[in-house]
């Protein structure tokens, strides 16, 4: 364990020395940080630009794949149009499905039924409210 701690300390010392050395180098060669700024900014851009290019093209490839599958199934005749659906359309479809499955529809099925309820008392069926009480 002691040896491990020593090794750890040695690693910290060595990395501090590296930082110090690089720091001195930066102070000497790039005192205003222009070089670092240019390189750093460009690298960040390149990293995200690569991600952009990859996913921009990946979307296209996936669309072509989906179109090919649909065509094979004979579902699509005209394949030129964009098959992507906007999030808003998706939300509308999801809402419609939710309403349908949870039967929160706004149109009734126009069949009226009278079901007997198990409730024994209701103000609607109460004789007290329904009949006049004649004075005796």
């Amino acid at each position: 364990m002691f040896l491990g701690l020593l090794q750890q300390q040695a690693a910290i010392d060595s990395s501090n020395a590296v930082i110090k050395r690089n720091s001195d180098l930066f102070l000497k060669l790039d005192p205003f940080g222009i070089g670092m700024t240019v390189i750093g900014y460009v690298v960040v851009f390149v990293a995200l630009l690569l991600l952009y290019l990859l996913f921009f093209n990946l979307t296209k490839v996936l669309q072509i794949n989906v179109k090919r599958l649909l065509r094979r199934e004979g579902k699509v005749i005209e394949v030129k149009e964009d098959i992507s659906i906007s999030g808003e359309v998706n939300a509308a479809i999801a809402m419609a499905l939710h309403l349908y499955y949870s039967e929160m529809h706004d149109k009734e099925d126009t069949v009226l039924t009278i079901n007997q309820t198990s409730r024994t008392y209701s103000p609607w069926s109460s004789k007290i409210y329904g009949l006049r009480q004649h004075p005796r």
């Binding site: 940080g33 670092m36 700024t37 750093g40 900014y41 960040v44 851009f45 990293a47 995200l48 630009l49 991600l51 952009y52 996913f55 921009f56 979307t59």
Partner: peptide, 15 residues
């Protein structure tokens, strides 16, 4: 995905 580039541009603050 082109909006990824805005995430890169704003790192100007760091440099």
């Amino acid at each position: 995905p082109k909006l990824l580039l805005l995430g890169a541009a704003a790192q100007l603050g760091i440099f």
